[in-house]
Every structure is written in structure tokens, then in C-alpha cells.
Design a protein around this nucleic acid. Sequence first.
DNA 1: AATGGGCCCAACCGCGACTTT
DNA 2: TAAAGTCGCGGTTGGGCCCAT
Length: 278
Amino acid sequence: MVEKSASNGDGAEANKERKGLWSPEEDDRLYTRITRHGVSTWSSVAQLAGLRRSGKSCRLRWMNYLRPDLKKEPISKREEETIISLQKSLGNRWSVIAGRMPGRTDNEIKNYWNSRIRKRQQNTSAGGKDGGGCCTKQGDLLAVAATAFELAPAGEQKPVCTGVTTEAAPPVPARFPLFACQLLGSGSGGGDTAIATAGTTQSTITHENNGAGSESEVSVGEDGREDHYYYRAGDGADMDMVHFLSFDDLLDYSAGDLLVDAWDHSEVYCTNSRSSAD
DNA sequence: AATGGGCCCAACCGCGACTTT
DNA sequence: TAAAGTCGCGGTTGGGCCCAT
């Protein structure tokens, strides 16, 4: 870093903006100022706290280190899986990813990604191809669900489903970053599951009840109404257009409406007037 | 014990978006 | 409407730690 010592010399240097690592005294000043008086603008915080730091630097220090709600423990395996799945669907939108992971900062996640996951994936991609895009295997779906469950802030981790049929499948979290659905179309589509992350336009659909565990390309798009997406099977697939909703929408339902298996959402659709077919 | 390389992570930089004047 | 100020984001840098040699 630019400088290591907390205290500079006097004179001209005294008015110069400080850079580099923060001293405990600076941390204390900033923390005290913000917890007592809040933030109007970051540049004023720097001034009023008596810090020779830019507002930008103060903001960064607070957001990445001093904020009381930050988790101090290392990123867990499940959190890592969350990062991987969210990065797949959202790209390098670290602040959005961090928003889904309470207690974690964008900088922390970005660093973690750059220093560990990306390198690991680079190594493994030398061997086998990672198809990219969305999850295509039931195991992946469950893994994503498991990690997503961890996303929910403690107060929101209310199990909303019963009758989970597989030990690996957790309850649907209160806030789930993904879209998921069970096809309602007639014929063999009825037992299919689909999952896609918000904002994606392509995914795959996994057939479970036609015996083969095969997959079809599907497209995801908005049907013109708010928070309302459709799934359309690709060429050759034997299913109709279906509606599905984000798990965030599940918050709109009373507990009684949500007594569904994590991977059997048909009841949700049945009770969701907004998602009825046109 | 010395040293060189790799890794981690705190912090800076540049830029675009947004807000205020 | 334009300019200035501010914020927030993603990319990058570089110091320090750890470990193998």
C-alpha cells in the first residue's frame, strides 16, 4: 500500500489526503461518527470525523470492514456454491450477488471469486467442459436450493414447505433468487421440472417422468406483465407454454398455500391467479 | 535461516449513473 | 438543460503472509 504508518509528519503533509491502510484510530473515528450521526454525504462524514480521507475511502472502509452486520467468519462451502450459481446467472455483478448474501460484501465476494473459484474453474475447465448457463441436473437444482436457503437472513428462514421428498431438498427459502416451476402442460410435461435464474433468457428443462432424465432447451421471457415469465419448450419438446413465478412471489402467499414440496409447485400455480394461462 | 513464488485481501482507480444546483 | 458534485460499481494493484525449497 501507499503508506503504512497511521500518523504522518506535520506541516504540508498534515493537510494531504491520506491513503493506504486504515489505523485503528481512524476506524474508531469513522465508526463513532457514523453510528452516532449517520451518513449525510460521505465527504461530510470524512470531514466531521476529522479524517484526512476522501469520502469515497470512508465509504469503502465502512461498507467493507466497519459495518456491524458483516460476517467475520470465512466463506463457507455453501456460500461458495451460492457465489458460483449466482455468478453463473448474474455474471460479475458482485454488488447484486452480495445483496443476496447477508453479511458479505461485494469486495469480499469478488476477491473470493478471483482468487479461488475462478482459478479452480480454469484448472478444471482444462479437463472437462462446463456447459455454462443454467443448472441442468436435478442434483444441481438441489444444490442451488440448498445454498439459496442459506441466503435468507436469519429472520426470514421460515420453512414454507412440507413433505419434502428427498433428504437433500431443503424447504423453499423465504427469499429464493431463482425461478422454478413444474410444468402444468398436459401429457408427459406434467412432471417436468425447470429452473432458471432471474434475468436469464436461456435454460434447460429436465424431464423426470419420461424415464430418461433428458433435457430440452427452453426460452424464458416476459409475457408483458410485471413479474410474470413464461417457459416455452424448444423444438421437439412435448410441452406447452407454462407460467412460473419467482420464489420472491411466494412471499405473497399465506402459509397454507405453500404446503408444497420444494419441487412440486403445481399447487402454487393452482392458487396463483396471476399465473393462470391466458 | 534465507529466499522466492503464490495467494489473499484491503484499498485504490476510473468510469458511469444519479442527484443537486 | 447543463454543469458540478456525489455515489456505487467492477477491475486492478500491491503489501504482507505462508509455504516450499
